[in-house]
Simulated scan of single mutants.
Amino acid sequence: MARYDEYDDDRVVVIDRDNGTSGIGTFLLGLAIGAGAALLFAPASGAETRQRLQDEARKAGRKMKDMTDEFGEKVADSVQKTRFQFDEQVGRARDAVSSRVQAVGDAVSAGRDAATHARADLERAVADSKRAYADSRRAYREHGRRHGPDDTSAPDDMVASSGEESTGASSEG
């Protein structure tokens, strides 16, 4: 006959699986086991036991309702808090985008203004240059009329601007 301590060396493997469930299933199992034990060990009559079971079932139902209500409130609070945080972040993002759009708009407006002023300055400079060129051509023509086509001396205003004194005499004389 085999002795008890010969089988004592067997290894026992226990696998515990946690499916991520809450304690509600465990609670219900414990409730059922407790109710069954109360029936077996109850020193009361059948009617009293049935009444006690109904009372305990009502208490368990209220307790379950309270637990589900509390869980629902926690979920609702969590959803509301998350929604508030999301709305707050969206608002900040909108403000940031709006300020950047405003800055870009201001920069574009300033660029347009600068381009408009630069164009006006350039057009003024071109007009002044054209006017000076036309004036110099007119003065050259007038000089040619006064002194004849053979006179190669520069007009008086051109000589004065080059730093030479005008004598009024031609260079051939």
Results as ranks from 00 to 15, higher is better:
Thr26Ala: 11
Val101Ala: 09
Asp121Met: 07
Ser129Met: 01
Ala118Arg: 08
Val97Ser: 13
Leu28Val: 03
Gly30Phe: 01
Glu70Ala: 05
Gly30Leu: 02
Gly34Ala: 14
Arg52Trp: 04
Phe84Asp: 15
Gly46Ala: 15
Leu28Ile: 03
Arg137Ser: 02
Ala96Pro: 02
Lys63Gln: 14
Lys130Ser: 14
Arg94Gln: 10
Gly46Pro: 08
Pro43Leu: 04
Ala154Cys: 04
Ala127Asp: 07
Gly46Lys: 09
Leu28Met: 03
Ala107Gln: 09
Asp18Glu: 03
Val101Met: 12
Lys81Pro: 00
Asp151Lys: 05
Gln54Met: 14
Gln89Trp: 06
Ser99Ile: 06
Asp69Pro: 00
Thr21Pro: 03
His117Asn: 13
Ala134Asn: 10
Lys130Gln: 15
Gly148Trp: 00
Glu70Gln: 08
Glu70Cys: 07
Thr21Arg: 14
Phe27Tyr: 04
Met64Thr: 08
Tyr133Ile: 11
Lys65Gln: 07
Arg119Asp: 04
Arg52Phe: 05
Lys74Arg: 14
Ala96Val: 09
Ala60Thr: 02
Arg146Ala: 11
Ser109Cys: 10
Glu88Met: 07
Ala76Gln: 04
Asp106Tyr: 03
Phe71His: 12
Arg131Cys: 05
Gly20Tyr: 01
Glu48Cys: 06
Asp157Arg: 09
Ala32Ile: 01
Gln89Ile: 09
Ala115Arg: 07
Asp157Asn: 15
Ala125Cys: 01
Gly23His: 06
Ala93Arg: 13
Ala76Ile: 01
Val75Ala: 11
Ala115Phe: 00
Ala107Lys: 13
Glu56Leu: 11
Arg141Gly: 08
Gly25Ile: 00
Gly20Pro: 02
Phe41Tyr: 12
Ser78Phe: 03
Gly36Asn: 13
